[in-house]
Design a protein around this nucleic acid. Structure first.
Length: 565
RNA sequence: UGGGCGGUCGCCAAGCGGUAAGGCCCCGGACUUUGGAUCCGGUAUCGAAGGUUCGAAUCCUUCCCGCCCAGCCA
């Protein structure tokens, strides 16, 4: 085995390697993850977090957590708290390097004054609408603002008066003096400061002018000594502007590198849309287990390891792409398969009576906790005369390829005996199967000398008298469409919401081992999937499980194909 | 029709002039007291057309398609 195949490389890693090789930045690697605290982190952010923190760790560098909090009207401490806990949960540590663009407001202001004094910036009295008109279009150049030629002295005075609050919102801006004819619209005298009499979640009322992202971001990176400013594709057009600011200011110049943001099938990842899902009540909140937020995935039962593994595998490139959510689910199952203890739970109980099993007898059978990890030991599972099995494991008229129980057929109960269905009890009114009468073969007890008799199927089960009742929430993709945004005109993307994204089952039965299951603990319910104890609604009195993901299910696939014909 | 960036298997993605990695999905088969896991095997000539070259996904030319930019959002 070569050592080269383990870590797939990508262009950003290559750039950093080369920079290091030629001794750039004093062989220093310093990145940052710069979220705006205006929403919860989602799986797309995880890609960026893994990239930035991962690269820094890999090259012995550092990664800062910096909040780009330049727009007080949209930001909130609730979001900074959630972001911090999500990054921590994902497994990354920014040490004491928790920064805020708002920490740099004074410095940024001084930078602005510096540019004004160099005749590189001016106070403009044009309204927002006028600025738009003066900007020109994609194909026509813009025209200079009439205020572009103000004297340095007047600009300094006006900007100072903007700061102390002499002017109402929107009446003036500070603009960079670049080139109104530039083919790159970002260079057509972009706004650097706007007047906004709004309280900031950190600086309170100290400021009534706020730097735009474009004026704050590059300089913030510079101030922090960032070597590689990794961001998404849409900022490629802004790079010349950031370069311009940094050059005019003659300060440390980080290298900006852009990559394609993550898109996932069957989900939306725009903050605006996620906010809408929450506000319109399509989900119960930012941490609804169907949300692609880190809070949602956490509550759903995803492990941080699986998300990191996913981010590693999808790669980093500049091509717009939509990753199949099956990839994420694969990473999840791979991780959970290794670590989740196995347990038996019956979601839709069908009562069966073993007619030849002694009335009062109870056997404690040995069950393996995790066949992938013998170190996890075994446990006892009670077996008795009346049991529950899964409704879907019985068919009165078994279709082709159905190996499970049906009249006259034999099947093994996992860790127990081979049983045979001898009678079907139906509700006289509805015809629904209400109970099965079965017999067991005492010679086939698991682990016994003659237990090797082969049967086509093995079923999970619980003992009726010993089982614990639980609620189980079956989650599925939030959207039926692969790409929820792909709608005919006039149709809203929310029409793609999956009406069956949540099915709640209230009379499930789980084995007694689960009585003390702790919040968030994860299990594999054998033959069904991975489940976790819900962190919000589960309690000692009422166990609530979330289905994290199903097991791969070939039979379901076969059946689906058969139905299609 | 201005500028920026992309187009390699159904989905991601390596490749940087020497004759198409890998993962996911899918399809076979082996094994299995989870129809799970595991294990084997299978599936592309690189957006198109020209050109350069002994040789091109990789270089050149032209064309086609997709994404982003006209917030005092980030």
């Amino acid at each position: 085995m070569s050592t080269a195949e383990t870590t797939p490389t990508h262009f950003i890693r290559n750039i950093i390697s080369e920079d290091l090789a030629v001794g750039k930045n004093n062989r220093r690697v310093h990145t940052r993850f710069p979220p705006e605290p205006n929403g919860y982190l989602h799986i797309g952010h995880a890609k960026s977090i893994c990239l930035n923190f991962g690269l820094a760790a890999e090259f012995g560098g550092l990664c800062n957590l910096r909040f780009d909090d330049t727009n007080p009207s949209k930001e909130d401490v609730e979001y900074v708290e959630s972001i911090k806990s999500d990054v921590r949960w994902l497994g990354f540590d920014w040490g004491d390097r928790e920064y805020y663009a708002s920490d740099y407001f004074e410095q940024l202001y001084q930078y602005a004054v510096q540019l004004i004094k160099a005749s590189k910036a001016y106070v403009c009295d044009l309204s927002a609408d006028q600025i738009r008109e003066y900007r020109g279009t994609l194909t026509e150049p813009g025209k200079d603002s009439p205020y572009r030629t103000r004297s340095v002295a007047e600009n300094v005075d006006l900007f100072q008066r903007m700061r102390v609050g002499e002017f109402p919102d929107g009446t003036r801006t500070l603009r960079a003096k670049i080139d109104m004819a530039s083919p790159n619209l970002n260079m057509r005298d972009p706004v650097m400061y706007r007047i906004l009499h709004a309280a900031h979640h950190r600086t309170g009322d100290r400021w009534c002018i706020y730097p735009t992202y474009d004026f704050a971001h590059g300089q913030s990176d510079s101030i922090e000594g960032i070597t590689h400013s990794i961001c998404t594709l849409e900022f490629e057009d802004h790079r010349p502007l950031y370069d311009w600011f940094l050059e005019q200011l003659n300060i440390h110049h980080p290298q900006q590198i852009e990559f394609a943001r993550l898109n996932l099938t069957h989900t939306v990842l725009s903050k605006r849309k996620l906010l809408q899902l929450v506000q319109q009540g399509h989900v119960t909140g930012w941490d609804d287990p169907r949300m692609p937020t880190l809070a949602g995935f956490r509550r759903r039962g995803y492990t941080p390891e699986s998300i990191r593994s996913f981010c590693e595998r999808i790669g980093v490139a500049k091509r717009n792409s939509i990753v199949d959510i099956a990839m994420l689910e694969h990473c999840l199952r791979e991780d959970l398969n290794r670590r989740a203890p196995r347990v038996m739970a019956v979601l839709r109980p069908l009562r069966i009576v073993i007619t030849n099993y002694p009335e009062e007898q109870v056997e404690e059978l040995d069950a393996v906790n995790n066949p992938e990890d013998p170190g996890m030991g075994t446990r006892k599972v009670p077996f008795s005369r009346v049991l529950y099995i899964e409704q879907e494991d019985f068919r009165e008229e078994p279709p082709k390829g159905f190996f499970r129980l049906s009249p006259g057929r034999e099947v093994r109960l996992r860790y127990a005996y081979i049983i045979k269905c001898v009678d079907v009890v139906e509700d006289p009114k509805t015809g629904a199967v209400t109970e099965l009468r079965c017999t067991y073969d005492p010679d086939t007890k698991s682990g016994s000398a003659q237990s090797n008799r082969k049967v086509k199927a093995i079923l999970h089960w619980v003992s009726a008298a010993h089982a614990i009742e639980a609620e189980v929430r079956l989650y599925d993709h939030l959207f039926t469409a692969e790409n929820p945004d792909d709608v005919e005109e006039g149709v809203d993307w929310t029409s793609n919401i999956n009406p069956k994204s949540l099915e709640t089952l209230t009379s499930c039965r789980v084995e007694p081992f689960l009585a003390n299951a702790s919040s968030r603990s994860r299990y594999q319910f054998e033959r069904l999937g991975y489940f976790c104890v819900d962190s919000v609604d589960s309690s000692d009195r009422r166990l609530v499980f979330n289905r994290t993901v199903t097991l791969r299910d070939p039979w379901a696939k076969i059946e689906k194909a058969q139905k299609k014909g």
